[in-house]
Write a protein that binds this DNA or RNA. Structure first.
Lengths: 213, 213
DNA sequence: AGATTTCGATACGAGAGAGTTTCGCAACGG
DNA sequence: CCGTTGCGAAACTCTCTCGTATCGAAATCT
């Protein structure tokens, strides 16, 4: 029996243990390169090894192909979700969208978002994983804000959550991507999107039914 | 002087004229391959030549590099804009978004949209051209609908056109891309987006000011 | 000490594709 | 008919990358 039991009780093989530092360097290098705009197709194992200061062997020993590596690399991204417990739904939504806006100015975020989006068709695993780790937590946070608003009456009780989220996130994405008024989206996009949307999301006072044109 | 004057007065060089059929075949083959999900990076000149039944020479004689070819290929796309002169703003908006929804089911449209989006950073020329030829005409049509609505009073007079377009298009894009309730977006996304948005866009009757929470 | 495994470095063969050139034929103008 | 240019096909040289193998050194266990 050549194993030894670690504190956690997991079996450990004999020989030199794998370097966690190398593993981290590989993942970081991958994200770096992707963040510089290199597509998954152009991304070469050799360039990753060079950037990470690591032998190719060390990469192949861990991942059998490029897609696996990219998937794992994306999986390490922990999306910093801002704390959303402001005074009003409007405040929380603005806070949330402001994060999206600010991120859209970062090369790295843009590139990684591009990759996730453009590979959703041909590499379902990658897209699925990305959705799980990067999108869903945020969606949950946003959903929480909307539900809170619907309970307090700040939002219509019959509001379609999914649709509201699509409108908010989608508007920001469309705006940051296709609006070419300048290099960056305007300072106040977040407020403007939220206010525009809230006019529809906000519950209407019973004395003021929507007009019939 | 070895030129001859064509009807249009343009000079024409001696020798065999370039084949328009070959040119079209090349562009078509390029769009075909891109539409099958092949990224610009993986797209090889040789595969284009093979698909088009054409020699590589014939391609290199016209385009000096791959990006130029892709740009020109995308430029041949004529987005079919549906006639928007319905009875109401709502009808027109639904018609418009329905086109987007239906297109999102087509592999080809998805792939080409992916390419345009994911290359907006690294290949500004490509993205710019795509915006001109594919996006702007549609934006203009959509803008027309909104303006008409603002004039007739069906929409708020102070509506932010750009924001409204971002909300409508963005919501549809977000929904078709990230909503994984099924392979396709639900049948009635268009109506639901429009109705949700209109609740905000629609002008409020003077007797019914928005509530102050 | 000895066994075992990983480390980074380097070399290797195989394959794909780029971009160029050549070839024989076709299409056009004069 | 002749010069010019385009055509498709093929061969060619280069470069890049993959994936594997090999090396001596290092790290860890027994």
């Amino acid at each position: 029996m050549k194993m030894r039991q670690t504190a956690e009780g997991t079996a450990r093989p004999a020989g030199r243990p794998r370097s966690e530092k190398a593993e981290k360097a590989i993942v970081d290098a991958t994200l770096d390169l992707l963040g510089e705009g290199i597509g998954v197709a152009e991304l070469s194992i050799e360039s990753i090894a060079a950037r990470a200061g690591v032998g190719k062997t060390t990469i192949y020993r861990r991942w059998s192909n490029k897609e696996d590596l990219v998937v794992d690399a994306l999986a390490t991204l922990k999306p910093p979700i801002p704390p959303l417990a402001g005074l009003s739904v409007r405040d929380d939504l603005v806070t949330y969208l402001r994060v999206l806006r600010d991120e859209s100015c970062h090369q790295r975020t843009r590139c990684i978002m591009n990759i996730a989006m453009s590979h959703s068709d041909r590499h379902p695993r990658l897209a699925e994983r990305f959705r799980e780790i990067a999108l869903e937590p945020r969606r949950a946070a946003l959903r929480g804000v909307l539900r809170r608003g619907m309970e307090t009456g700040e939002l219509r009780a019959d509001l379609d959550e999914e649709m509201a989220m699509a409108i908010l996130s989608g508007a920001m994405m469309w705006y940051t991507r296709w609006n070419r008024s300048g290099p960056e989206p305007p300072e106040d996009v977040a407020e403007r999107i939220v206010d525009e949307a809230l006019l529809g999301f906000r519950s209407h006072s019973p004395a003021a039914p929507p007009p019939m044109p």
